[in-house]
């Protein structure tokens, strides 16, 4: 018993984990750069209504798709709307959807996966079979029904995206937790009588952060593209509003004639994702419990 307490205490000291991680992150220049870029983008998105040179819906049909010029720095789309403005406004949608929907998926997925993995046995089997069922249901029908029952609403978008994206997250976390559960310090924590919730919250979840962060950085781009697909189907944002994903998918159609309609939104999305990725990698390294030994 006393040995168990000693093991537990030792593990408990890792609770300065967050401070350590922050120190380590500060040393990672690439990750810091990523963080800066993201903060800048968020500020830009917040200030867009005051900074944008035109209205996002303002069109000039006679102008049509014009290449970049002094009036329109990034050119105009086929309805003669300023691309810079549309990319800026699109960023508001994409960033919001990317972050919020991913956060929703993250929250549900991590908790669900952690509980399933930690409880194991029948509970785990039941919970994972539910995931299988949700995986298997036809997504298109689900979307169509959502639209019909609730009409068109941006909140539905989060719901629809969250509903798909948490599944994989839950799977990954569960796998991680299954192996963590065998570790000594968890057994120690159990033996000193800590409740399952406390253990999941204090030990399991922090230790799965590495893979979760990596997967999250992978999820954000797919969420942004999923948003474009759902908006195209009529769920989510409606024209004349736009998002990066939508701008890119329309840009693909005309990439030979009007390459700027694809390149600039594509570039913007790529920069954001790279920043996110570097930050994610940095965070992962910084949070790696083993790294503290070195």
């Amino acid at each position: 018993m006393s040995e168990a307490i000693a093991v537990y205490k030792q593990a408990e000291q890792g609770s300065s984990l967050w401070q350590d991680a922050w120190h380590r992150l500060q040393k990672n220049k690439l990750a810091l750069c990523g963080l800066m870029v993201l903060i800048l983008e968020i500020i830009l998105a917040l200030l867009t209504p005051w900074l944008a040179p035109y209205g996002y819906e303002q069109q000039d049909l006679a102008l049509g798709a014009a290449p970049p010029s002094m009036e329109h720095w990034l050119g105009t789309d086929t309805l003669g709307r300023d691309m810079l403005t549309r990319i800026m406004y699109g960023g508001r949608v994409s960033l919001m959807v990317g972050f919020i929907a991913t956060a929703v998926a993250l929250l549900i997925g991590v908790v669900y996966g952690a509980v399933a993995g930690y409880m194991g046995g029948k509970v785990d089997a039941l919970m994972m079979r539910l995931v299988d069922i949700l995986y298997a249901l036809p997504f298109m029908i689900f979307i169509i029904l959502l639209m019909v029952i609730f009409g068109q609403n941006i909140l539905l978008l989060f719901l629809a995206i969250g509903a798909v994206e948490w599944l994989t997250m839950a799977r990954i976390v569960r796998g991680q937790v299954l192996s963590l559960r065998q570790q000594e310090y968890i057994e120690a924590a159990i033996s000193i009588g800590l409740g399952p919730w406390t253990i999941i919250r204090r030990h399991i979840i922090p230790n799965t952060l590495g893979p979760v962060i990596v997967y999250t950085t992978l999820t954000i781009p797919s969420v942004m593209l999923l948003e474009a697909f759902l908006s195209f189907l009529g769920l989510g944002i409606q024209p004349p509003q736009s998002s990066w994903g939508l701008l890119i998918s329309y840009g693909v159609e005309t990439m030979e004639e009007y390459p700027w309609l694809l390149i600039y939104p594509g570039l913007k999305l790529s920069i954001t994702l790279f920043a996110l990725n570097f930050l994610g990698d940095g965070l992962r390294d910084a949070l790696d419990p083993r790294a503290s030994k070195d």
Partner: peptide, 8 residues
């Protein structure tokens, strides 16, 4: 590769 959707 991850960002690049197959439709592109």
């Amino acid at each position: 590769g991850i960002c690049m959707p197959s439709f592109l």
